[in-house]
Nucleic acid binder design. Structure first.
Lengths: 223, 223
DNA sequence: ACCTGAACACCGTTCAAGT
DNA sequence: ACCTGAACACCGTTCAAGT
């Protein structure tokens, strides 16, 4: 799209290419494709510039991908949250973040594939820690809960983006009928899935579990 | 490694290249590298054969990767389990499966990146469903638990393979000190992490949660 | 400082050809 | 049927060169 936009009049040296524009162009690419579409040449084209111009503003493709995904975290973490209870506030934030990553599937998959460290993920972690800390959890419990939530977020996005529910019917065809009786018996429940609902459920169980574990832990070793 | 093994005496047409050997060669590559090292040329070299010979036994790279990862699931699902309680049996299986995927990191990352459907994942699902069913869970609860477990497995592997705990200290450096007070306060607990322990904890919370939810659900709508 | 274009060493895959 | 080698259309990135 916009192939012939941005055709520079002057021969070169426009000084109007910025990291922000490059990140924005990357997100445009990632919005409609998987990470394989994020190529330096494609991003350059989107910016109306030669491929090598990109390298003057970012170190390499890896850093560019990280910056693009981190900007989504930053947007999500900046949304003001009005929920009273820390639990509701945390869950609402996580659902919003998850939705943003799914809406830009290429970015979602990059988050699944590689570590994303930046202002966005830092703010996100601060926000999560803030909620958990408000819930009265100990430092150890905050770390445990945070890790469990991260695992669920990554797994949920990977599941939604690469494993459509229908694919599960293929599972039953991999072996002889008598080898997967229980799978077949439950296939009907298994092949239908609302990713958001499954995510919300699992997060709820995790929070219940960590709160309960931390309560009994502090009861055994009181301060 | 083994660059000069398997040099065929007769000019060609050896008829000794099989899918099994190709899968085994792929696992050798994936054992010591990330998925980017799994190239048709590299696998072919490992088999002592030209790159195009591979295409006579598999459709494309994607199918080859799927087969390789699926074989790890198959191995894990074939291990006889002696644990009496379904819960212990399920957890022991999941920990073993997780370990196998981490021990072949390239395969672990492929599992994170793409759907793996084959005899191995079918057997794995049957095994999981069997445990959950033995636990008296309803079909809906089995599907919910199974999804939560899959998310945790994917997320746990992605976390361990792409996010070493030390990386977290980088998070604090992304923003001004006063912007991440709670993160900084808890960094010590957060930057230390035993992936296996975190996985076990989270799985426990999930199983507690789903059992409890299903119990109260069936109490409200008795058969 | 900022941008370009050619070039290098890779990819997956197709195709025509060999036995 | 099974395998090979050349070729195509891509990659990320380096390098020398332009303004």
């Amino acid at each position: 799209m916009s192939k012939s936009a941005k055709r520079p009049q002057k021969t070169s040296q426009r000084r109007d290419l910025t990291v922000e524009k490059i990140v924005e162009a990357s997100l445009v690419v990632l919005r409609s494709s998987d990470p394989s579409a994020l190529t330096m040449r494609r991003v350059a084209e989107e910016c109306g510039v030669s491929a090598m111009a990109i390298y003057h503003h970012v170190d390499d493709k890896n850093q560019l991908a990280t910056r693009a995904v981190d900007s989504l975290f930053f947007s999500a973490a900046r949304v003001p949250r009005t929920e009273e209870l820390w639990r509701d506030r945390l869950i609402a934030f996580l659902e919003d973040l998850r939705r943003r990553l799914l809406d830009t599937p290429g970015a979602g998959m990059i988050f699944v594939r590689q570590a994303v460290i930046g202002p966005g993920t830092a703010t996100t972690t601060e926000l999560m820690f803030g909620c958990l800390s408000e819930g009265g959890l100990s430092g150890a419990a905050i770390a445990e809960a945070s890790d469990a939530i991260t695992m669920l977020l990554i797994g949920s996005i990977a599941n939604d983006l690469t494993r459509p529910p229908q694919i599960r019917e293929e599972l039953g065809k991999q072996l002889a009928h008598e080898e997967t009786p229980i799978l077949r018996q439950n296939m009907q429940s298994y092949a239908i899935r609302d990713g958001s609902e499954r995510f919300r459920l699992a997060i709820g169980w995790i929070l219940d579990g960590v709160v309960q574990a931390d309560t009994s832990r502090s009861r055994n070793t009181p301060t």
